[in-house]
């Protein structure tokens, strides 16, 4: 039987990260299955956790004006091969507060695991909230991941989220995020995912630029190899004057992979402006031959190009 520190260490070992959780200025929360195995908050940041049968319910509140200087480390994981982990997350970021979260979702042994995240996030006026979620999966593909989030971005507030799933097999991932922005609000959502074998990647990201001078960017970078499939649906609507947005989807396809991109832009105000671009295809031949002319094999060159595309 592992002790809690040993369990925490086991989870982080898979992430190539040393979060330095002993630092008193670094807040953290580590959940294995439905059990809190580590938690530390800092002044102004309140974390309440309720353990459920199949997961946890979190209430995260950041007081008005609080600026958390060091990134907060979250780790949601399951070491067993089977099971369900459900995370219900309610986040309230106070006026002019700032916080950055680094979340690791670690399922290194998953054979038949479901990870469900259901988040409601409210970012008050002038606040900044950044959430980087990195997944580490087993190589067996037996994982189903359903991250859902509804986000409200207040006046002149910033919401930035980045989702990374490059290590291990995807299994099935079905992302569904919807955001709305008030005047001057900014939303920036990025997903970087690499699928292999028979992995299935589904992304549905919707941004509503309701406020005047609000801004939004939805970016997806996907690689599908073998028989993997990806479907990316990005929709950005603008109803505020001078709202600006861009939807960008790049998908690299190898072998028998299948990729779909559905970028939708919808403008409801004559002074708003949204652009989009989508590119799906194999590796660019000029890139490939440049690397091959330096002595790389075709396989190594493809790997390098894909790694570059999916890099932060």
């Amino acid at each position: 039987m592992k002790t809690q520190p040993e369990l925490i260490s086991s989870l982080y070992d898979y992430t190539d990260t040393d979060p330095n959780l002993k630092d008193p200025e670094t807040a953290h929360l580590v959940i294995n299955g439905n059990t809190v195995i580590g938690m530390h908050a800092v002044t102004g940041l309140n974390i309440k956790v309720k353990e459920l049968d199949d997961g946890v319910e979190l209430l995260v509140t950041l007081d008005d004006g609080t600026i958390v200087k060091k990134p907060v480390h979250l780790c949601f994981g399951m070491l067993p091969e089977t099971g369900i982990q459900r995370i219900i997350m309610n986040v309230n970021i106070g006026t002019n507060a700032q916080i950055s979260l680094l979340a690791h979702c670690v399922f290194p042994n998953a054979v038949d695991v479901q990870h469900l995240m259901d988040a409601t996030i409210h970012i008050a006026d002038g606040a900044r909230y950044s959430y980087f979620e990195k997944h580490v999966h087993s190589s067996k593909g037996g994982l189903k991941v359903y991250p859902k989030a509804v986000v409200h971005v207040g006046k002149n507030a910033h919401f930035k989220t980045e989702f990374e799933l490059i290590k291990g097999r995807v299994g099935l991932i079905d992302i569904e995020y919807e955001t709305s922005c008030d005047d001057g609000g900014v939303v920036d959502m990025m997903a970087r995912i690499s699928g292999r074998a028979d992995d299935i990647i589904k992304i549905k990201e919707i941004g509503h630029l309701n406020g005047e001078r609000s801004k939004g960017a939805l970016t997806s970078k996907i690689a599908v190899r073998d028989n993997a499939r990806a479907e990316v649906y990005n929709k950005l609507t603008a109803s505020g004057a001078y709202a600006r947005g861009h939807v960008d989807c790049k998908e690299i396809l190898q072998d028998n992979g299948v990729a779909t991109a559905i970028p939708i832009v919808e403008v409801h105000h004559p002074k708003a402006h949204i652009t989009h671009e989508a590119a799906i295809g194999s590796v660019d031949n000029k890139q490939l031959e440049t690397l091959m002319s330096r002595g790389l094999s075709e396989d190594d060159a493809v790997e390098m190009i894909i790694n570059g595309l999916l890099a932060r």
Binding site: K250, D284, K286, Q287, T290, M304, I305, N307, G308, L309, L310, A311, R312
Partner: peptide, 8 residues
Amino acid sequence: PARFEGLP
């Protein structure tokens, strides 16, 4: 020369 997105 070719461009490589994200390749340092």
